[in-house]
Design a protein around this nucleic acid. Structure first.
Length: 112
DNA sequence: GGTTTGACCCTAA
DNA sequence: ATTAGGGCCAAAC
């Protein structure tokens, strides 16, 4: 169904452990596209069309600043923050956006 | 089929 | 610290 890129992206996101977060660029890099971060966003956006996240922990994917980038989608940033908090992750609300401490919660993939 | 946009990131000034 | 530009590829128009 999805191209290999999307499939890899979904697969990598599934590998993010509980209570940990990863960045778009990180997922993209693990899929071979160091600069294909936008594709990760597209792939996740496509999930909204499919349904309720399709068993993919999209909530653990945030941007490089540790901020939730969603503005107005099927899945809102409030939902994402709620899901992350339910995993024990501390989410800070600042200026109408949710922030996560990457130094604490950033996923470190085993390949390194 | 060209142009614009998109849950982004990096480099340079 | 902030601003500007390039890059990546796919969907939307």
């Amino acid at each position: 169904m999805f191209s290999n890129f999307y499939d890899q992206i979904y697969n990598k996101i599934k590998e993010i452990p509980y209570g940990r977060v990863a960045t778009y660029g990180q997922i993209a890099a693990l899929c071979g596209n160091a600069r294909g971060a936008r594709m990760v966003g597209w792939a996740l956006n496509a999930l909204n069309n499919v349904g309720p996240s399709a068993q993919i922990p999209w909530q653990r994917v945030i941007n490089r600043e540790g901020r939730i980038s969603i503005v107005n989608k099927n899945a809102t940033k409030d939902l994402q923050a709620d899901l992350l908090r339910s995993e024990g992750i501390t989410v800070e609300l600042r200026d109408g956006n949710y922030w996560i401490d990457l130094t604490k919660y950033l996923w470190r993939p085993p390949a390194g």
